[in-house]
Design a protein around this nucleic acid. Structure first.
Ligand SMILES: [Mn+2]
Ligand SMILES: [Mn+2]
Ligand SMILES: [Zn+2]
Ligand SMILES: [Zn+2]
Lengths: 153, 153
DNA sequence: GCTTAATTGCAACTCGTTTGCAACATCGGC
DNA sequence: GCCGATGTTGCAAACGAGTTGCAATTAAGC
């Protein structure tokens, strides 16, 4: 599913992230580069464990402890380099993030496949934000269903 | 915030739930009644721990182990008597559920107060459900912000 | 190169939730 | 009302994602 998210090249995304690390006074280490590299090359989102497996198996020498994955992800999230997804199954997932990456997902209840939905119906317009008196309102929106592969097969 | 959810009396909600238990071949026990009683009288949503505290402190003799709370909630959820809420802070919450109880929440990022939003913007209207080929699509939607009390005080 | 502060690995720990199992209530039938 | 079958509970132990302390290591600046 090629979408607007591929406006930048993967290599460019990674370079941007590296710069962001430097600008924030963070050290550029092999594990951090490996994680950013992965997230720039595959949309995900990935659990910390999935990231750990891929980064460790990759020949790109980013192997590290799972704890390091957690700590890097926490730093990245703090810098808004990545976004956290929570699909309500006991673990969290991450994908490349930042201002212009806001979007939502539809998850297959059977095979757990995750598709990204290019447009946000909330900002977009259609949803009428209820007037609650709250400020700085953000939202979390996920769809769940049965994907074509699952109801066909 | 009195809403359409109070169309039935609290007592009636509880009786309905009791019937649902019987109809499902489940035994009607003191802990189960106490939990349903609480959820019918206060909107919540409540964490299993909060439910445990309230049910155990209540003079209504529903005291039980926290494990029992978890097991009852799991059964209730399976029967769609209650709905699970996940606000992404390490614990889950429950409130009375079922067909006509679908709604969403806005949570204060500072004091964690939870308000229920009476209307669902997704079903309710325009939200153009993206055509994904998925079937039986449901959704989870939560808003986060700063509540009036927090930005005033 | 050398210094210093940030980062990492490892082990131990936290905490919400789950599971095993024996004791115990509920409920339908007598 | 009593009784047995089946579902439910309490307690303790286990589980698993995520976190933390600390000593060893490494990146960055000079
Ligand atoms: Mn995505
Ligand atoms: Mn609610
Ligand atoms: Zn959105
Ligand atoms: Zn809705």
């Amino acid at each position: 599913m090629a979408t607007k998210h591929h406006a930048h090249s993967h290599k460019q995304e990674k370079v941007d992230a590296e710069d962001a690390l430097r600008n924030a006074g963070l050290k550029v280490t092999k594990p951090r580069l490996a994680i950013l590299d992965l997230l720039a090359s595959e949309h995900g989102p990935f659990t910390p464990d999935e990231i750990h497996v891929r980064v460790t198996q990759s020949k790109a020498a980013g192997a590290c402890d799972l704890v390091t994955i957690y700590r890097c992800l926490a730093k990245f999230e703090g810098l808004s380099l990545i976004n956290r997804c929570d699909f309500g199954d006991g673990t969290v997932r991450y994908e490349l993030g930042g201002k212009d990456h806001h979007h939502h997902h539809i998850i297959c209840r059977l095979c757990k496949r995750v598709d990204s939905l290019p447009d946000c119906p909330v900002e977009d317009k259609s949803i009428k934000m209820p007037k609650t008196g709250f400020r700085d309102v953000s939202h979390r929106l996920e769809f769940f269903g049965i994907c074509p592969d699952c109801y066909a097969g």
